[in-house]
Design a protein around this nucleic acid. Sequence first.
DNA 1: GTGGTTGACTTGCCGTGTCAACTGTCTAGC
DNA 2: GCTAGACAGTTGACACGGCAAGTCAACCAC
Lengths: 176, 176
Amino acid sequence: MEEKAEPRWLGREETEIWFTFGTMVTSLPDALDAQLQRDAGISFFEYQVMSMLSMSPQHTRRMSELAALANGSLTRLSRTVDRLNKRGWIIRRPDPENGRYTLAVLTDAGWDKVVATAPAHVEEVRRAVFDPLTKAQLRQLRDISTRIGRTVHPDGCLPTLPEPDPAEVAVRDTRP
Amino acid sequence: MEEKAEPRWLGREETEIWFTFGTMVTSLPDALDAQLQRDAGISFFEYQVMSMLSMSPQHTRRMSELAALANGSLTRLSRTVDRLNKRGWIIRRPDPENGRYTLAVLTDAGWDKVVATAPAHVEEVRRAVFDPLTKAQLRQLRDISTRIGRTVHPDGCLPTLPEPDPAEVAVRDTRP
DNA sequence: GTGGTTGACTTGCCGTGTCAACTGTCTAGC
DNA sequence: GCTAGACAGTTGACACGGCAAGTCAACCAC
């Protein structure tokens, strides 16, 4: 008796789309990493972590929130914060409201680093993503990303961009 | 005097697009890796390498070609082939036509592994990428990926999907 | 043909990420 | 209260990828 249905193979057309898309998906992070490493000596993930903190109230976040915002595991964040802490850009503090949490806080030096790093990074993002696309394509990309993101993310809880801290609009668009 | 122009910051709209897109770009590879690791005990990159070989004439490719097709560095491929070789799925052979090249060849066991692994993987790709998008969105995604891919890839030489080996149409749509 | 150069890998070392096990903190149930 | 569990985070052991240096074949130039 039949146990499995015939797999729904990809056709030639679909294979091409998938190949092109897959190539882009793997190359883009490499390009962003390369730019940041070259110009600022930090990785994309490290930049994301500091950038997210720079947009957060008091430049502070709980570790677990921060991990979700930066799309990384808690372990990865813990190690990354170790490194950034050694470089003087982030400090840890226990959360006074609940001792189980740890707060990551961006130092002044960390803030300065983000401010110094952001322009070239944003420029690279524009060059790679925004400039080559039309306005219509950007809208399409948003919709497509939302749909794919939903299927990939468990229990429908996509991370959401934090509301910018009104006190710090200067770099509210730093995110990446 | 002015040394630098004011950076072209991202606006609120753009920041949102970039955040959504970035989240998708980082989560999707994780999801594919997770499925392959769980169901077949191999990484996405390892699968890509074997899949590309399975689509190549004689199930054979030069290392450098294979690295480009699978979007990885030569170092990464060399180490990956080491692992797959230890598992009995790939062997190395010097290229008789030019001793500088090394050929990677998929073994029969490697072929069987790809054939056994492909259906569940393709299903996951469909679930994550194809099913949630309309036909129009797929076309849009192809165009968008092509444009972004061009800006990100040096000297305009994007890797191209190999023509399938007519003798092996069975899994010609295995890619990803 | 032989000395130098280039091209195609391979490898030693190191940084980074993951999994699993562990520590410390809070919360429930009794 | 006090013990059991659930959370939040850290850490040790290991896997993996990158860089730079090393190997080995091929292609000159003379």
